[in-house]
């Protein structure tokens, strides 16, 4: 068994990086489309943006950044062979992921009770589809992290074998990164 040595430029399975790259490409196109259509509808976008409750977004940003930190700690723990600690950090990250979903659902509920739909206007179209698309990614990320956590508890990883943990962690960081950009772009920038 070979560890992921320093010769390996990317942590985790190579496949996940292909996947992450494809994901970033799609989000990149979506963000560009948002920026592009905002240019010709700045007034509408600003007015609609002002109706968003930024505290939801802020809480969720902090939640995801913290969970990313937990995942990083989990990776460090397993590199030192402390699989119990790794499992605990992953569990914490999963709990924060669930918190994110709960807050986001609360916000969606608020939006829908205000009568907002995908067809309300162009801003809400982007807001709803981008946040929902990201929401689905958090769900997928949690499935991956949950699988990794399960394998950790089952003793599949140790100081020499931890590609799986790194793979899950890489994906989770991507989900976090996309959210930070999304938060800045859709909730804050105007």
């Amino acid at each position: 068994m070979k560890t992921a040595s320093s010769a390996q430029p990317l942590p985790g399975d190579f496949a996940i990086w292909v996947f992450i790259f494809a994901e970033l490409l799609v989000f990149g196109v979506l963000f560009s489309a948002y920026a592009l259509s905002r240019m010709s509808n700045a007034g509408l976008f600003d007015a609609s943006q002002a109706t968003l409750n930024r505290s939801y977004g802020l809480v969720n940003t902090l939640t995801l950044v913290t969970s990313s930190y937990f995942v990083a700690r989990a990776t460090r723990a397993i590199r030192h062979g402390r699989s119990a600690a790794c499992g605990r950090w992953l569990g914490g990250a999963l709990a924060l992921g669930a918190l994110f979903l709960a807050v986001k659902l609360l916000e969606f509920h608020d939006d829908f009770s205000r009568g907002i739909t995908l067809s309300t206007n162009l801003f809400y179209m982007f807001y709803l589809s981008l946040t929902f698309f990201h929401f689905m990614h958090v769900v997928l990320g949690m499935v991956i992290l949950g699988f990794v956590a399960y394998r950790t508890y089952a003793g599949a990883y140790d100081a020499n074998r931890y590609t799986g943990v790194e793979t899950g962690a890489s994906y989770w960081h991507m989900v976090d990164l996309v959210w930070i950009i999304l938060f800045a772009l859709i909730y804050v920038l105007h």
Binding site: K2, D13, A15, F19, T163
Partner: peptide, 14 residues
Amino acid sequence: MQQVFTKSMARNIF
């Protein structure tokens, strides 16, 4: 073993 893109990985992505 650092595995590179395996078939089962590709299948899971699919």
